[in-house]
Structures are given as structure tokens and as C-alpha cells.
Design a protein around this nucleic acid. Structure first.
Lengths: 340, 340
DNA sequence: GTGAAAGCGCTAACAC
DNA sequence: GTGTTAGCGCTTTCAC
């Protein structure tokens, strides 16, 4: 319980000037106290100012500060869809990392729509955000908007290096490989792939990893089905995979959401998981732990990536060079693969 | 493909002054063009200005505008946890509604922590957001922070009216009632409740609705288990409900996430759903559609609520009175209840 | 240790 | 239809 703030009788918000007058000091001193610098203030004066601030209920005006300083202490995050659990998790981690550094986070959804993505970026730039984190709807993002926006940025979910840009991603191929190798370890010889589709035509690292693991084990390629990185996408992928002429006994899905959809298709077909169909997936979202059966999944180090992304942005305003960072994944073993 | 912007040779960002000089007009005219008012501009002049803007790559400085206007055209959203699918969905809807009105959305997670919730609100207030949407960690939110912040606000997930505040909620009791009535319609006479817990002690409307439906049907109350509104919470609730002396044949869970956790507990116990245990839940999140079996759930009109919340905030700055709005829910019938 | 004042980029009232 | 200008609240240099 703190003493309730007594509001000033005069109208309008309390400014630094009011505080100065009340405390009997200049506005500069109020600034020194509020910001802890750049000048020292006598303890007695400081106390007076603090009192005035509390009594008047003064809150600094961030817009004025942003105007003066040229920095809004705000970061922008543009994702295809915040209600995708992976991006929701990521957003949370980004918000944590940003808040720890005193930055607020402005959120924008692009809904898988390039025009909307661009609009979001431009909007953020106009709002003087100090940096933007972009999970593009494109596999190879449209760097021009970012360039003309002249704003520090980090490309998220980015496996390939984009020179001149900060980027962050996971080692998709390595992650897929450990998952598929694990499935192979369970004795499967026909392992299908439920591959999510990108807007671009480039081959996703997860497809590469799946293929590599199979090759190294001297196994033939199982059936591949391409569909969206979503629950419905996984559902139809599952249906098609189950209908394929050489039906696999195990499937690697490139996202947890696809795996969830796939699980539904498998259950509907009356097959048991992992008995008649083993499944492994990618992302490590919370949802994967409570599916039936719980999913064996390749976990992305979301918190670490978010921290690195925010750090890169904050570093960029200090003149640090853009760089490309790839994070390792870890296999989270649960029951869908056949482990007890 | 648009003509690439030619950047000015001089350093620093382009201001309205640069545009004015380049176009050979005054800064006022640039403002009139950019804002489409308040004065009319001759078509020829307007064209010149537009050209200058494009050529110089001018972007208005939102901080300056916010300072001048006293409005940042930004809304704040504080939720317990954006990675909770329900809040993720809600956030998306809020962002859509805000963007449609030209507002950006600043996101804050309170992580179920009251101190953090308060810090978020104060932070948003300092940033001159035009309003905050608060999904409090408390059942009866701490209105003092909001009051002293002197900022328009809407309380989300708020069943009860908080005089002087905008609030929005769903009719929890009615929603629970239709779900439980549906379960009763399937012939169940022993229906348990997996009730999520609030920080406050007030009785949740969903508990009321469950009880009412049972009473009206002349049925005895089934077992109740209280636990968190989460997947793990639902999981332990499920385990306890299954272990109860008079094990129910159907359970109503107060959130989809609880139901997902509950489903896992039921599956682990080797019971079939809905055969040996029927389930219905609350929220209508995307996850509920792809559980096994798909959940019969009470859907909240998230988009409508988000729009209303944003409208209330924008209305508040125009002097509209705060009001309390309750939205109806709809039962989404899938298979977990026993329907084919 | 403290204060006066310039100026960040923008809007809009007012003058022409 | 266009231009001039005061001032939004803040930071910080420079003088005291």
C-alpha cells in the first residue's frame, strides 16, 4: 500500500515544469533527477524533486523524450500470425528480452500477406521504433522495404545469411536429422515427410536433413507431402501420407502444428501412435507436450534466439555490425516416436 | 515495382523542412498535404509536395506528431501471457481492430504477476498510449493503477461491471450452461467440473452455470477439481477427477487448455473419449479443433470483443461514457461430447 | 550544484 | 492557397 497520489488541482497532465515549480528548482534539475544524470544533484535537492514527482503524480512524456533523443525505446515485431503458437512463444520471449532492456514492443501481424508485411514495416519506421524484428512471410524476405526504411532490423527464422542484415535462425537440417535418426533408431525403414511450404521455392533445411539422415542410414526416401505449416495443413498431409502406396511407418512433420493435425488424421484412420505410426516433429511448442500421444519434437531455443535478436538490434544502434546467427536445436523425446 | 527511393545526400533523417525546401513551399503546406488538411492545397502544389516526399523518402516523425497532438495513436495491451492461445488469438484480433483505426499496438505480458501488470500499465501510460486493454491476472483488477494513470482503459475478460471503467466479457454462466446441458442431453448424470482458479476468491460464472444446468435437470453435482487454467492444470485435474470416488462419465473443463491436459490424463488412464469419458470445454481456440478427439467447446466471440474493446478506447478519447458489455457465446459441437 | 535556453519535428492558428 | 510562427515536453550545453 503506497500513499495514494494527490492529483494537482490544475488541469492537464503534469509536466516537468510543474514539478520544477513545486520543488523550487529548474527544469534541468528535474531532468537530472529523473534520468540520473548527466549532472549530479545534491541529495537534499533530489529529495525535494522526488517528493514533488510523487505528490504531483508526474510521469515523463515519452513522446517528448523520443523526439528529443531520436529514439522511442521501442522495438517492432512483425510476424505472420501471433496466434500461431510458435510466434506467440517467440513474441513472449522477445517482449521479455526487450523489456529487460527498457524497450517496449509494438506488434504487427502480416497474416501471410506480403503487402501487409510491408505496410507494417513502414508503419513501424514512421513510429520511430529503434529496430524491427521481422519473421517474414517470405522465405527470402523482401529486403528493400527494410533498406529504404533505414532502420536496424533482424530477420527471424532465417537460415541463410542476408549480407548487410542481422539474421537469426536455427540449424533446420541438423534438427531434422536428429529427429529422423531417432526414428531410424526405432527401426523404421520407411519414413515419410510432412513438409511445410514456403512462398519461395528454395528447399527448406528440414527437407535436406530428412534426406540426409535417410541416405546416411542407407534407407530409401519415404513419401513426401507438401502442405501448409498449420494444423489443417498437417491434417491433409496425414491423410495423403496414409493413402500413399507405400505407406510409411513413421513420419517427420516440419512443425508441431502440422504434427498435431497429422495426429488427428492418423487417429481418424484408426491407427495407433506410435504403434502403427510413429511421429516426430519440429518446434518444441507447449502444445506438443499435451497432444496424444505427447510429441517427440525438435526444440528451438526460442528464448536465446529472442535475446540475441533484441541484442543485435540494440547493438546496431551502437554501430555494431550485422551478423548471422544460427542456433542449435535439441531433441525432446516423448512418446510419439515409440519411446516409452 | 516502384521507383527506388533516392536518398538525399545530406545526412540525418529527412524532415518536413527538407521536403518544403525541395518542393519550394512552406512547411505548413507539407503538413496540409501529409494530413489531408486542415487547409486545402492547390493540386499542382500538392503534386510537387508528393514528388518531393517520394524523392526524398520522407517519413513523418511520429514522436513529434505525438508530442504536438498529445496522442501517440497507439494502444497498449496487457495480458497475463501471450503464449496462452486464447490471449494470442485475442491479441491478433485486437491488433486487427486497432490497425483498422490507425492505431499501433504495444504488447505487455504480466506473467500472472500483479507487480509486473502494474509496471506494464505505468510503462504504457508513460509512453502516452491512448488507451490500454487489460486482461488482468486478478479476477477483480487493481483499478487504482489505472485510475492514477488517468488513461482510457478497457477491462477484458471481465464478467462484472466495474463502475467508471469500460469492461468487456462473455456470459460465462450462460456459456457453461449450454455446454453442460449438451452433456446432459447425451444422457450423462454424473458430470464433473475441472474449474480453473482465479487469484481472487469470487465464484467464476462457469461454476455457476455448471451448477445451474445440473440443478435444472434435477441432477446431483458431480465432483469439482480446482486447478490452473492451463494444460498442466487440466492434466492434474483430470487425474484427480478420474480418481474420485464417484468418477464422472463426463467433464466440463473451463478452458480449452485445461481440456487438452485433461484429455491426456484420460488417454493415459486408457479410457476412451467420448465413450467412457465425455468432455466439453470453454474458449473455442484453434487448438480445440485438432485435439483427439476434437473438442466440443463454448466459443467466445473474440473478434467482436476485440473490436468493441478498441472502439470503447477510441470512443473514450472522444468523451464517450465507460460501459460494460457482455457478449454471448456459442456452442461449437465436435466429437468429445459424444456427437458423431 | 543549479539554471537559462535552444531546439528535436510537427500542427494549426493566424496573417497575408 | 500559402506562409510564419508559437509551442507541445523534454534533454543538454553552456554559463554561473
Amino acid at each position: 500500500m503506497t500513499t495514494p497520489a494527490v492529483h494537482p488541482t490544475r488541469s492537464g497532465p503534469v509536466t516537468r515544469k510543474d514539478v520544477a515549480r513545486y520543488a523550487g528548482v529548474s527544469t534541468a534539475v528535474v531532468s537530472y533527477v529523473v534520468n540520473g544524470g548527466p549532472k549530479k544533484v545534491a541529495p537534499a535537492t533530489e529529495a525535494k524533486v522526488q517528493d514533488a514527482i510523487r505528490i504531483l503524480g508526474y510521469r515523463p512524456n515519452a513522446a517528448a523524450r523520443a523526439l528529443k533523443l531520436g529514439s522511442s525505446e521501442t522495438l517492432g515485431l512483425v510476424v505472420p500470425d501471433i496466434s500461431n503458437p510458435f510466434f506467440a512463444l517467440f513474441s513472449h520471449a522477445v517482449e521479455d528480452a526487450a523489456a529487460a532492456l527498457g524497450y517496449a514492443l509494438v506488434l504487427g501481424n502480416s497474416d501471410g500477406n506480403l503487402a501487409k508485411e510491408r505496410r507494417n514495416i513502414r508503419n513501424l519506421a514512421a513510429r520511430q521504433v529503434d529496430g524491427v524484428l521481422l519473421a517474414s512471410v517470405l522465405f527470402e524476405p523482401d529486403l528493400e522495404v527494410l533498406e529504404t526504411a533505414e532502420i536496424p532490423s533482424v530477420l527471424l527464422n532465417q537460415e541463410q545469411d542476408a549480407p548487410g542484415f542481422n539474421s537469426i535462425g536455427v540449424d533446420l537440417a541438423a534438427g531434422a536429422r536428429i529427429a529422423v535418426e531417432h526414428l531410424i533408431g526405432h527401426g523404421h525403414t520407411n519414413i515419410g515427410l510432412a513438409m511445410g511450404t514456403n512462398v519461395s521455392g528454395a528447399t527448406d533445411g528440414r527437407e535436406v536433413g530428412w534426406r540426409e539422415a535417410l541416405q546416411e542410414a542407407g534407407l530409401p526416401e519415404g513419401p513426401i507431402v507438401y502442405s501448409a505449416f498449420t494444423r489443417p495443413g498437417g491434417y491433409t498431409a496425414g491423410q495423403r501420407l496414409l493413402a500413399s502406396v507405400n505407406r510409411p511407418t513413421a513420419i517427420f512433420a516440419t512443425s508441431d502444428m502440422q504434427a498435431i493435425g497429422l495426429l488427428r488424421a492418423v487417429h481418424e484412420a484408426g491407427l495407433s501412435v506410435p504403434g502403427q505410426m510413429a511421429v516426430a516433429s519440429f518446434d518444441g511448442s507447449a502444445e506438443s507436450e499435451y497432444s496424444w500421444p505427447p510429441l517427440t519434437t525438435v526444440e528451438q531455443p526460442v528464448a536465446a534466439m529472442a535475446e540475441a535478436a533484441v541484442a543485435a538490434l540494440v547493438g546496431a544502434s551502437r554501430g555494431e555490425k550485422p551478423r548471422h546467427r544460427i542456433f542449435p536445436t535439441t531433441l525432446h523425446i516423448r512418446q510419439s516416436c515409440g519411446c516409452p
